[in-house]
């Protein structure tokens, strides 16, 4: 173990320079984020994630944000275990009928101010599953959404661009 740790110290970090914030994301956020909230949060946001019906592809890329290459926490962004600790709710998937209630309860458990980020093509409008009888639709059909990050699934870089845009506007 010491050898591996020592190697990591001498090889230099794998972490890559951050991407620029997503322009479309900045524009979408301009309307939803106010100055007072920004002052309170101090450039740090806690994220609670809910899979509301995803195929788990988006979850794989959300996980990748924490690997050595993307290192999400350097931006002051971190995933937390409880909605009570969260400023941001990320939601993936079309919202299924079976997850609607759990999603709403998670949102309701979060303190204000709070933002909702819908992640992936399904979260925008239900995607390929929009026509299903057991799907409610996109996240906006259940919760107020502040930012959409598109892609199937969005790559970690696209996720970072969106979340950095949120950080620019919100915190």
């Amino acid at each position: 173990m010491r050898k591996t740790l020592f190697e990591s110290m001498t090889r230099g970090p794998l972490t890559e320079p951050p991407p620029a914030p997503d322009e479309a994301g900045l524009a979408e956020l301009a309307q939803s984020v106010n100055r007072a909230a920004r002052a309170k949060l101090g450039r740090s946001l806690s994220i609670r994630h809910v899979d509301a019906g995803s195929c788990n592809g988006c979850e794989l890329e959300l996980h990748a944000l924490s690997n050595a290459f993307y290192d999400l926490e350097r931006f002051g962004l971190r995933f937390v275990a409880s909605p009570r600790h969260a400023d941001v709710l990320t939601v993936t998937g079309p919202v299924t009928k079976n997850m609607r209630e759990a999603l709403k309860r998670t949102y309701d458990a979060m303190p204000d101010p709070k933002w909702v980020v819908a992640i992936g093509a399904c979260a925008v409008d239900g995607g390929l599953f929009a026509a299903s009888d057991v799907v409610e639709g996109g996240v906006k059909d259940v919760l107020p959404v502040d930012l959409h990050i598109r892609g199937c699934p969005p790559s970690p870089t696209e996720l970072l661009k969106g979340l950095i845009a949120l950080l620019e506007r919100a915190a």
């Binding site: 899979d51 509301a52 019906g53 998937g93 079309p94 009928k97 759990a102 599953f129 009888d133």
Partner: peptide, 11 residues
């Protein structure tokens, strides 16, 4: 289980 039931086979 069943929370992420999306009706794939029906679609």
């Amino acid at each position: 289980l069943g929370y992420v039931h999306k009706g794939i086979e029906a679609l």
